[in-house]
């Protein structure tokens, strides 16, 4: 599994990575591989606020639909519009062009409690 060592992860396979004052949210390589071909991503409206752990969207693969959970609370400041035309970007480049949303977080401490890449790798390997 590919990992982004600068990102932090939660056990439902979403990651967060610092991006200036915001955080980029996406799903891990392990998650995209398990889902298979991704064919639709439903993302929230810009400006909406979510608590940590809340459902902020749905990702649909050929096999199934899965809820997306925010790894940290915050306000949506950007969504990846490119996924509308090419949802498979999540398969091809989940840490790069296949990002999902950007949030401004009220609590940067929530970032610190997420798993680092090595810890997440061990946990994902157990699945």
């Amino acid at each position: 599994m590919k990992l982004d060592s600068t990102a932090r992860y939660q056990s439902s396979h979403e990651y967060a990575r610092k991006d200036g004052t915001a955080f980029v949210i996406g799903i891990s390589d392990h998650a995209q591989a398990a889902l298979g071909d991704i064919v639709y991503v439903e993302l929230p409206e810009i400006g909406k606020t979510f608590a940590k752990g809340e459902t902020f969207g749905v990702i649909e693969s050929v096999k199934a639909a899965s809820d997306l959970y925010l790894p940290m609370g915050g306000k949506i400041v950007a969504v990846n519009e490119a996924l509308g035309g090419d949802p498979a970007l999540v398969n091809r480049d989940c840490y790069g062009e296949g990002w999902l949303v950007k949030i401004e977080s009220g609590s940067a401490a929530e970032f610190g409690v997420l798993m680092d890449a090595a810890t997440y790798e061990k946990e994902a390997d157990k699945e």
Binding site: G36, D37, V39, V62, K63, A88, N91
Partner: peptide, 10 residues
């Protein structure tokens, strides 16, 4: 197999 390594859409 639901899909081979090629992937379902391809």
């Amino acid at each position: 197999p639901i899909s081979y390594p090629t992937g379902a859409v391809e």
